[in-house]
């Protein structure tokens, strides 16, 4: 009896210590070395996005939009490769590829994080409302989501971006409110096609949670719909939301890269990894560095976010193996 008690309570206190949900999460998460490394990489990328561009420009003395045709292009307009002054070589327009890649991190992360954040916010509202109220509201919102999911994303995106680029005022929504081509438009396009996935997941979770005993208890104590949604259901969605957001961010970054690769993303004067890869097409047989460096950063970023998402999912899922 004593031995067994000692095994269950090695500290010798009268009660077993209870661990908070956040502590449980952290204990599980810190065991995942891959996720920790991914977190470190993302922190580093965020620092690069904030300080990398200006710092690289300062250290090299090469402003972001300055062309060095005499130094970094041959007489046939072909870019020159890495050297001691231009560590990543030059892009197709004879600008410092290192500086452009660093500035590109800013564009990619802004697009990725902001677009994912907005998409998740919309999805949360739609999913919660649809899952909680069910009936006609659920059917209407779900069908809208289904329609969005059925659309050919890339083709529609190309159409929207082209339409908004073809006149001075951009896409006029109402009166003076208009979306101008550029990062804002790219974010809008990504949001339009991203929210339905998350909304469907949120709705599923909501449908399940609203039937739980603690929700019934809350309702029987006289809690209104608003309170139940925000105090009982929403906190239980935080885990999945965080996981899916981290998985959505790399998708958004890749979508931006794809649009920029097609020449439909951010304007050509704004550095982005997709834009740099688009530029690399022209010189793929002669200028390997154009493909390598932006491509490497893109791969590392998406991989890091995906691994972090996996790690978070494992750490937040109490039914998991670990």
């Amino acid at each position: 009896m004593t031995a067994a008690t000692d095994l269950l309570n090695p500290s010798g206190s009268g009660f077993t210590e209870t661990r908070s949900a956040s502590r449980l999460f952290w204990e599980r998460f810190r065991e995942d070395k891959v996720a920790l490394v991914a977190t470190g990489v993302i922190v580093l990328l965020i620092l690069i996005a904030i300080f990398g561009g200006p710092l690289a420009a300062r250290l090299t003395g090469h402003p972001n939009d300055e062309q060095y045709q005499n130094l970094m292009q041959d007489s046939f307009g072909l870019p020159k490769g890495p050297n001691s002054q231009f560590l990543f070589g030059s892009d197709g327009e004879a600008r410092d590829l290192l500086v452009r890649t660093m500035y590109g991190a800013r564009t990619s992360l802004i697009v990725g994080v902001v677009a994912s954040g907005i998409a998740v916010l919309i999805a949360l509202v739609v999913g919660l409302v649809a899952g909680y109220f069910r009936g006609f509201v659920d059917t209407s919102l779900s069908r809208i989501g289904d329609v969005m999911l059925a659309m050919p994303q890339l083709l529609i995106s190309i159409g929207i971006v082209a339409a908004c680029s073809s006149n001075k005022d951009g896409c006029v929504i109402y009166g003076p409110i208009a979306i101008q081509p550029g990062i804002a438009l790219v974010i809008c396009v990504i949001v339009i096609f991203s929210w339905p996935y998350i909304a469907r997941i949120v709705r599923g979770f909501t449908l399940s949670i609203r039937e739980k005993e603690f929700v019934e208890a809350s309702r029987s104590l006289g809690a209104g719909d608003f309170r139940i949604i925000f105090r009982e259901i929403l906190p239980n969605l935080i885990g999945p939301i965080i996981v899916y957001t981290t998985l959505l961010i790399p998708q958004s970054i890749l979508f931006e890269a794809a649009l920029s690769y097609l020449g439909l993303g951010v304007p050509p004067d704004v550095a982005s990894w997709g834009g740099l890869l688009n530029d690399a097409q022209r010189f793929y047989d002669t200028a390997w560095w154009l493909m390598l460096f932006p491509g490497l950063f893109l791969v590392i970023t998406t991989l890091a976010f995906n691994l972090l998402g996996d790690g978070l999912r494992d750490a937040l899922d109490v039914r998991g193996d670990r």
Partner: peptide, 12 residues
Amino acid sequence: GVDPGMVATIQQ
């Protein structure tokens, strides 16, 4: 393909 390079020059 060549237009971004031209735009960069014109802007500069």
